[in-house]
Design a binder for these strands. Structure first.
Lengths: 72, 72
DNA sequence: GATGAATACGAATTCAAC
DNA sequence: GTTGAATTCGTATTCATC
């Protein structure tokens, strides 16, 4: 279950503007992944996602597991 | 004052493993920049820094204003 | 090992002051 | 426009359960 859920997380944060873990939790539920904020926090840790400012002044989650070594 | 402080922030997070804003506040104070967590939160927002997992399982602040467009 | 509930903790924002 | 104190809010972790 975990892998599928994390895949969906990656998909969601890429497509949508998700700014909180609660928000992500709600979106996941719509896809059948019923989970809590605690689990999402762990997923975010494993996937190395980050909360980043967008140019329009709002926050969103994004992937940091990029080719950018400076982040490591 | 703000610009100098933000410059020092960028310098600090590059050199050291800083994992909380309180931590950053303490380090800044050693350099003569006495400021609070509230201000640091704003600086982090402006500088577009992110809290990211390092490979060794700990968190640290890092710069996201990289060439990586995917983060935007 | 994976997860949830509750909690402790860290961070973003409000509100006022300057 | 910048900042700090206090607050609200969001998140990481603990502790237990499975």
């Amino acid at each position: 279950m975990k892998f599928q859920r994390q895949s969906k997380i990656l998909e969601l944060i890429e497509k949508e503007q998700i700014d909180t873990q609660e928000d992500l939790s709600r979106r996941l539920k719509e896809w059948g992944f019923s989970t809590t904020q605690a689990t999402i926090s762990r997923d975010i840790k494993e996937l190395r996602l980050v909360k980043v400012m967008t140019p329009d002044g709002t926050y969103k989650y994004a992937s940091a597991a990029s080719e950018n070594e400076a982040l490591a």
